[in-house]
Design a binder for these strands. Structure first.
Lengths: 149, 149
DNA sequence: CGGTATTGTTAGCAAAAGTAATGAGTTCTG
DNA sequence: CAGAACTCATTACTTTTGCTAACAATACCG
């Protein structure tokens, strides 16, 4: 079994927390730089993705889910609406609230986004073994749970 | 085998790329929010961490390692120096270059940072099984490699 | 030497998220 | 049931953080 430099610092929970923080930060930066051509910001993509996964919800719910403050989500949703990717409707029982949902165009964007990201990440993923990809798959689910806790 | 909602979207490389992007982005935001009380930005922490891991290096090397542009690293290093966490010395053989290294105070900060992060993340990690933590450990190494590619 | 390349910095700008204050709608309460 | 209190979203403003372009200093090379 190969001993990478990283593994020496992940024995404890604290060490793992540190390493994970740094790595996640760097990868996030890298991803952000990657979608330069891209028309959508990381946050916009994340919101679209969440709507695709969970169906319509209010801006507030969306904000909480994405762990941003409501004003940030207002901006994200406004940008998405401007581009016709989402639609806002009044909540039937509470005029303060709104319901945000994907338009068909938004759904197509989610599909397109997936294709676009593949451009560089699939390149890297291709170099991984099936086991490693599987590890990432399972890690994604775990990290997802971490952010929700 | 349990079937989570996420797994349905990670069968293909593209699907995995999408999910990973969103999850990593959200976790990065969460981490950033977490160190609010904290005195150091995510980028500053990452630089400190890298120095702790790899020893002294030039700002340029640091920038490349962290995948930021040199001016960004200039700012990060300047901030760290201002706080006495790193020290800059001239490169012995090339007056253009500098060598950045941790001070003892910087080293202590790395340790403190690790303790601080543990405050909330260890809480979450505690709820994971050893197998799940192991998955995260291995995923961190893989993601680390992804950002270097 | 004199011109070019490299290293780091400064300056200016843009994107994205945060906090505080505001407006509109709903609910509670005396 | 009238008004206080609360909730949801938005607007206004600030902060953070990264980028590109231009620049200064040093090193290299013909």
């Amino acid at each position: 079994m190969k001993k990478s430099p990283l593994s020496q610092q992940t024995r404890t929970d604290a060490g793992l927390a540190s390493v994970l923080s740094v790595t996640v930060g760097r990868l996030a930066r890298r991803l952000r730089a990657q979608r330069l051509d891209a028309s959508l910001s990381l946050g916009q993509n994340a919101a679209l993705f969440t709507l695709a996964r969970h169906g319509e919800m209010t801006p507030g719910e969306l904000a909480e889910h994405e762990k941003v403050q409501p004003p940030s989500m207002t901006r994200i949703v406004a940008a998405l609406e401007e581009r016709g990717l989402v639609r806002r409707t009044r909540h039937p029982e509470d005029q303060r609230r709104q319901l945000v949902d994907l338009t068909e165009e938004g759904r197509e964007m989610v599909r397109a986004d997936r294709r676009r990201r593949q451009a560089w990440m699939a390149q890297r993923l291709k170099e991984l073994t099936p086991q490693e990809k599987d590890t990432l798959r399972r890690a994604a689910e775990i990290m997802d749970r971490l952010t929700q806790a």
